[in-house]
Nucleic acid binder design. Structure first.
Length: 454
RNA sequence: GGAGAGAUGGCUGAGUGGUCGAAAGCGCUCCCCUGCUAAGGGAGUAAGGGUGAUUUAAGCCCUUCGAGGGUUCGAAUCCCUCUCUCUCCGCCA
């Protein structure tokens, strides 16, 4: 059995939840144990009691409604037979009384349902069995590495210094016109970022079969609830004051995955693969003091995002391939990186399993996240009411959704600068980007522009 | 921003207070006939939830006609609010 969607009916408590409601009702203890792996504490006893109460109220309510329906039908019949009969009068009195009871029952049921529904929305996804235990990022597992760490014969500069030396990266201008955590890129770096974006889009669309999509950068509450950013993480988002209840997207995942909302895909249409470039806006609330310097953590950054919709059986392999697609960008950019399997405690709210791609940053002497590739299984699909069916006759079931950055352009830019710099502050351009930059092979240090390739 | 029209099942489209979960057509499924890439006849065909049954039953019940609220014993049908779509005007990259 499937849940009804969204706010369609107040009589189902299953709307917008993430994990399988049947499973949860049937065996809250097991679910609680599973969620405990990611540090989420769920009171199974409390839940069972709430659910039992809700169910009782539902039964009562439905019974009263049945009585009401039958009574009303009888009124209709009596009216046709004899509008003056005393039986009709009695019947109406009885029903008025019944209506009062119904009102009470309805209220009680609604409250019980609302409590549970609000609770459901805060439950994170169940983890894939392959996700290792662990409380935080220190327990993440390295899967593999790629590329070679740069071996500088000099003291490498960080991207801020590199960018400012060539007058192509201006943080103070940005902070004056807006505030902290913004940047102005100029000249060759503005163009380099655009080149990165174009390269990534062309790669994914051209070689890996993704359909490029252009999507709204403002989305409504429902969309964000569908992908899991709401209701729990509203403080991470920018909400606009005017117009409807809109938010700036924190990632293209939101609008792109919502392409599947309320849809029933035929099996033959799947998998869906979409790629989109959008700016991303994040309030970064709670990150005060972290990564203050430079382009690592900004309120606005550019990202190319990959999204897939698959039939359930295909999602694990699709996930592996998705990681490879994102990874291939790093390979072609000739950047050193590693692939990490996130542990239970570090895996995101909506995800069942996540691989992070981390790029080497010489200025920090460590790897930093540049892509996060997740399999959400049916978690988002439930919230989005996104389904598929074998053929037009068969019963629809939830799709699986996946996404991953492919890649974050801002971080790719700074990784290029830092890893490919020379002693004079110049930066070599990897071959894959040269066609997008008029063929230049390097950015010359200390000047404002790149030099033509020889 | 102003004016108007609309939102019903997979689609088209009826339906202005009770027997409407909803006519009809299309599509689809099954069967029959025919017998050849045609036509005809019949039946079935919304979704979700609950209950039920000793393995996924039938039956029964509840809910759903854009969303939310109201009137009523009873609402697809009346009233209010909102959202969206379409047309016209204005403005605009």
């Amino acid at each position: 059995m499937r849940q009804s969607r969204g706010a369609l009916s107040p009589d189902t408590t299953s709307s917008d939840l993430m994990i399988d409601i049947k499973l949860l009702r049937q065996d809250p203890v097991t679910i609680a144990a599973q969620l405990a792996r990611r540090g989420f504490r769920m009171d199974a006893d409390w839940y069972a009691a709430q659910e039992a109460q809700r169910k009782g109220l539902q039964t009562t309510l439905e019974d009263l409604r049945k009585q009401r329906n039958e009574g009303s039908r009888k009124v209709g019949e009596l009216k046709v037979q004899n509008p003056e009969s005393s039986e009709l009068g009695h019947q109406l009195e009885t029903l008025t009384l019944l209506d009062r009871k119904l009102e009470t029952a309805e209220l009680a049921f609604r409250q019980a349902s609302a409590t549970l529904e609000a609770f459901h929305l805060t439950l994170p996804n169940l983890l894939d069995p392959g996700v290792p235990d662990g409380a935080d990022e220190s327990a993440n597992q390295e899967v593999r590495r790629g590329g070679f760490l740069p071996d500088f014969g000099f003291q490498p500069r960080d991207h801020v210094e590199l960018g400012e030396r060539i007058q192509a990266m201006d943080f103070s201008a940005a902070s004056e016109m807006t505030g902290a955590r913004f940047v102005v890129l100029k000249g060759i770096l503005a163009r380099l970022q655009r080149a990165l974006i174009s390269f990534m889009l062309d790669l994914h669309a051209g070689e890996y079969g993704y359909e490029e999509v252009y999507v709204p950068h403002l989305v409504n509450r429902q969309s964000l609830t569908g992908t899991g950013q709401l209701p729990k993480f509203e403080s991470d988002l920018f909400r606009v004051e005017s117009g409807a209840d809109w938010f700036l997207i924190p990632t293209a995942e939101v609008p792109v995955t919502n392409l599947a909302r309320n849809r029933v895909f035929l099996k033959s249409e799947l998998p869906k693969r979409w790629v989109a470039h959008t700016p991303c806006y994040r309030s970064e609330a709670g990150s005060y003091g972290k990564d203050l310097k430079g382009m690592i953590r900004q309120h606005q950054f550019e990202k190319v995002e990959l999204v897939q919709v698959t039939v359930p059986n295909d999602s694990p392999s699709a996930h592996e391939r998705l990681v490879e697609h994102a990874e291939s960008v790093l390979k072609r950019l000739e950047l050193p990186y590693r692939v990490m399997l996130l542990c239970a405690g570090d895996t995101g709210f909506a995800s069942a399993k996540t691989y992070d791609l981390e790029v080497w940053l010489p200025s920090q002497n460590r790897y930093r996240e540049i892509s996060s590739c997740s399999n959400f299984r049916d978690f988002q699909a439930r919230r989005l009411n996104a389904r598929w069916r074998e053929d037009p006759k068969s019963k629809p079931d939830w799709v699986h959704t996946l996404n991953g950055s492919g890649l974050a352009a801002g971080r790719a830019l700074l990784a290029l600068l830092e890893n490919r710099q020379d002693e004079g502050g110049g930066v070599s351009i990897p071959p894959c980007l040269r066609p997008y930059l008029g063929g230049i092979r390097e950015i010359r240090g200390g000047s404002g522009a790149g030099i033509p390739g020889e």
